[in-house]
Structures are given as C-alpha cells and as structure tokens.
Amino acid sequence: MFASLPERYETNVRRAASFRAKPAVLLTPDGGKEPAVMIRQASIIQGVLPVPEALRLANQIADALAAHREGK
C-alpha cells in the first residue's frame, strides 16, 4: 500500500478538497460526440475520461476504499 510522507499531509488534504468530477462530452475527429467525465483540480482540467475509463477509475477508487474497510 502506498504511504504518503507526513510532511505532505496538509498539501494532500488541501489538494484533495479541490478535485471535482463533472459531466463532459468528447468531440470526435469525425464530428461525433461521446459522453465523458471531466476531472479538474481547482481551475485546472486534469483530464477528460471516456466512459469506460471513468468507470475503470471509479472502480479502482471503490476497491481502494474497500481495502481500507477490510483492513488490507
């Protein structure tokens, strides 16, 4: 399991509070539109995830939280 350094605690908590996920649309090269999720931290867009990648990330976050509940 990853362990963050104690001196990074305040920075990690502050940055975590500024992350947001919002609905988005990916515009394809051929003019189409695909549903997506935009991840931003403060005013900086960190990425726009197609639905499969957003679901993959959401599942990884859920698994990480479950690992804590299970004491892993």
Rank of each mutant, 00 (worst) to 15 (best):
V13Y: 04
R20K: 06
A3D: 11
A42S: 09
F2W: 11
V48H: 03
T28L: 10
L49E: 02
D63R: 13
R69F: 10
T11F: 10
V37L: 11
L49Q: 02
I44G: 00
F2R: 07
P23V: 03
Q41I: 12
P52L: 03
K22M: 10
G31R: 05
D30L: 10
N12K: 00
A16T: 07
R56N: 06
R69L: 13
E34H: 10
S43H: 13
G71T: 03
P52N: 02
V48Q: 05
S4C: 09
I39K: 04
F2L: 12
A62V: 12
K72P: 02
A36P: 09
L55H: 13
E70A: 15
A64H: 02
D63C: 06
A3S: 12
L26R: 09
V48T: 12
E70I: 04
E70L: 15
P35R: 14
L5S: 10
R40K: 09
L55N: 14
K22L: 12
A17W: 11
R56M: 06
L5W: 05
G31W: 11
Q60F: 04
A17K: 14
S18H: 14
S4L: 14
G32P: 09
A21K: 09
L26D: 03
A67C: 09
A21R: 08
R15G: 00
P29V: 00
P6D: 11
A67D: 15
A64D: 02
K22I: 02
G71H: 05
K33W: 01
R40C: 06
R69S: 12
S4R: 10
A21S: 11
A21W: 11
N59S: 14
G31E: 10
A58C: 08
P6N: 04
D63Q: 13
P52M: 03
R15E: 11
A3I: 13
A17Y: 12
T28Q: 04
R20I: 00
T28K: 01
Q41W: 14
E10V: 06
V48C: 06
L5E: 10
P52K: 01
L26M: 08
L65E: 01
V51D: 04
F19H: 04
A24K: 01
A66Y: 01
Y9F: 14
P35E: 15
F19I: 13
E53D: 14
V51R: 12
P50V: 02
M38Q: 15
L57S: 05
A64T: 05
G47S: 05
T11M: 08
I39Q: 04
R40V: 02
L5T: 03
V25A: 02
E70N: 15
Q41S: 14
A24T: 00
R20E: 11
R14P: 00
E34R: 14
E70P: 09
I44Y: 08
A66C: 01
I44P: 01
R14A: 10
K22R: 11
L49Y: 13
N59V: 05
L55R: 15
L55S: 09
A66I: 00
I44N: 07
A16W: 07
D30T: 12
P29A: 00
P50K: 07
R20Y: 02
A3F: 13
Y9C: 05
A64N: 01
F19G: 00
V37R: 05
P35I: 12
R14I: 00
I61W: 07
I44L: 10
L49G: 02
E34C: 05
